[in-house]
Computed example of a mutant assay.
Amino acid sequence: MFHPLQVREIERLTDDAVAVTFAVPPELRAAFRHTPGQHIALRRSVDGQEIRRTYSICTPATDQPVLVLRVGIRLVEDGAFSTYALKELAVGDTVDVMAPAGRFTLEPRPGRFVGIVGGSGITPVLSIAATLLAQQPDARFCLIRSDRTAASTMFLEEVADLKDRYPQRFQLIHTLSREEQQAGLPSGRLDEARLRSLLPALLKIDSVDGWYLCGPYGLVQGAERALRAIDVPRTHIHEEIFHIDNGTPTAPAAATPAHSTVTATLDGRSGSWPVHDSESLLEAVLRNRADAPYACKGGVCGTCRAFLVSGEVRMDRNFALESDEVDAGYVLACQSHPVTEKVELDFDR
C-alpha cells in the first residue's frame, strides 16, 4: 500500500546523486518501521502512466520518536524517476511511498560482517552497518567499496562518521576504478580475480558471519564467485542487484500454453483470469487486480514475490529470491510465465 509522504530534505551528494528524506507522520510510523537493508517504492504519474521505482533506505533503523526515511537516488540515463528527483523534486512536495520491503537485511546481532559494494550499492549497506554498530557492541563490520572517482562517491561523510565513532569495530577499504588514490588500494575494478586475492589478505574468512554484496550485476556476481572460490558457504552470502546490464542472461523464451489461466490469492481474495501470449503472470493479475504488489518489474526488488501453489512457471530473470526461497516454491510474478495451462499463485504467504 502507498502512502503520501512529504519531502523534508534534499541533499546533493554528488553531481549525479541526491539523498531525499521523507517525514513520516505519527499515524504511519508503525507501517514505515524498517529492517536495515530494506527498500521503499516511490510512485508518480507521467502522462497518465504510473511509474514505480525502488530505492534502498540508508537511514539507521532506530527507535527514535521522530521517524524519517532517507534514500539515495543516482541519476540514470533517461530515468523517468531519477531525472525528476534530481531536477524537479523540492522540499515540501508529496510523494507516494510504499511501506518498506525486501529481504536483503541484517537483524543486528553479535558477529563479524562484511559488505562489498559498488557505487550506489552503498545505500542499504550503510543502514545495515550503522544500525549494527550502534545496537551491538560485540559486532564488527568491514566495508569494501568501489567507486569510479572520489567525486562520484555517495555518502562519504556518513561513512567517515562511522570510522570516527567505531574505530575499533568498523574497517573501510575503498578503491577507485578510474582515479589513483594517494593512499590505500591501487586503482582498478573489484573483479573476481582481484577479490580472490584481496579478501584472504584482509580478513580471516572463516570468522565472517555474513557477506552483503550490493551494486551492479557484474560486481555482485564477480564477488559471489570469488567468495565461493575461497570456500564461503552460500548461506553466508546475501545479494542485491542495483543495475542490470542489457547483456544479462535470461531464460529461453517459450510460448504461453493456449487457454492458460492464473488463479491468484491477494489480501484474502482469490480470482482466476486468462493469461495472454507472452504476458507475465503479474501483468495478467494486474489487468484484474490493480492492487497486486510490484515495483521494479525487472526481477530485482522482490516486491511481487508469490508462492506457487500449483502448476509450473518459467522465470525469465531472478535477482531477488535466494535459492532456498525458490526451492520452497516462491517465484517472481513479474518474471514468471505459465508452462502449464493452469497456474495458482498466493501473494499472501
Results as ranks from 00 to 15, higher is better:
His3Met: 04
Val309Lys: 09
Arg189Leu: 14
Phe104Lys: 01
Leu190Thr: 06
Leu132Val: 02
Arg12Trp: 09
Arg74Met: 10
Phe141Glu: 01
Ile173His: 15
Arg74Leu: 14
Glu312Arg: 05
Lys342Tyr: 12
Ser187Tyr: 13
Glu88Tyr: 09
Phe104Cys: 02
Ser177Arg: 00
Ala80Asn: 11
Val339Ile: 15
Gly302His: 01
Phe141Leu: 04
Arg52Cys: 03
Ala255His: 09
Phe22Arg: 04
Ala255Asp: 13
Phe242Arg: 01
Arg194Asn: 07
Glu283Lys: 08
Ser197Lys: 12
Pro25Lys: 03
Ser146Met: 04
Val24Glu: 10
Gly311His: 00
Gly311Gln: 00
Thr59Glu: 12
His259Gln: 15
Pro338Lys: 02
Gln38Leu: 06
Asp348Arg: 00
Pro233Arg: 03
Leu28Ser: 04
Gly222Arg: 01
Ile116Tyr: 14
Thr149Asp: 12
Val66Trp: 13
Asn318Val: 03
Ala61Leu: 03
Asp324Phe: 11
Arg8Pro: 00
Leu219Pro: 07
Val343Leu: 11
Tyr217Gly: 12
Ile73Leu: 04
Leu162Asp: 07
Leu213Ile: 02
Leu132Glu: 02
Val18Glu: 11
Leu286Trp: 05
Ala90His: 14
Pro25Trp: 08
Ala253Met: 10
Ser272Asp: 12
Pro186Tyr: 09
Leu185Gln: 10
Pro200Asn: 05
Asp316Tyr: 09
Tyr217Arg: 08
Arg145Asp: 11
Leu219Val: 05
Ile51Phe: 10
Ile237Thr: 01
Glu283Pro: 11
Pro257Trp: 08
Lys163Ile: 06
Ala80Pro: 09
Val71His: 08
Val275Pro: 15
Val68Ile: 14
Ala80Thr: 07
Ile230Asn: 02
Ala253Lys: 08
Val343Gln: 06
Leu13Ala: 07
Leu202Ala: 11
Val285Asp: 07
Ala99Asn: 02
Gln136Thr: 07
Gly210Lys: 03
Val18Cys: 13
Val95Thr: 00
Ser270Phe: 09
Ile128Leu: 07
Ser127Arg: 01
Arg305Ser: 01
Val68Asn: 15
Val46Asp: 13
Gln182Pro: 00
Phe242Met: 03
Asp245Phe: 05
Arg269Pro: 08
Thr131Pro: 11
Val220Lys: 06
Leu185Trp: 13
Arg234Ser: 13
Pro338Ser: 07
Gly222Phe: 04
Leu282Met: 02
Gln221Arg: 12
Gln171Asp: 15
Glu224Gln: 11
Ala255Gly: 10
Val24Met: 11
His259Asn: 15
Gly215Glu: 05
His236Met: 11
Ala90Lys: 11
Asp93Tyr: 00
Tyr84Val: 00
Gly72Pro: 03
Ser272His: 12
Arg44Leu: 13
Arg148Tyr: 00
Cys334Gln: 05
Ala292Cys: 08
Thr235Asp: 14
Ser323Trp: 10
Leu195Arg: 06
Ala201Ser: 15
Asp164Asn: 14
Ile173Cys: 14
Ser146Arg: 00
Thr35Phe: 09
Arg109Ser: 14
Phe319His: 12
Cys304Thr: 04
Phe170Pro: 08
Val46Ser: 08
Asp209Arg: 06
Asp324Lys: 10
Arg317Ser: 08
Thr340Pro: 14
Ser323Phe: 09
Val125Gly: 10
Val7Thr: 01
Ile51Glu: 10
Ala150Glu: 14
Met1Asp: 12
Gln6Glu: 12
Gly218Glu: 15
Glu325Thr: 00
Asp327Ala: 15
Val343Phe: 13
Arg314Gln: 09
Pro110Tyr: 02
Asp138Trp: 03
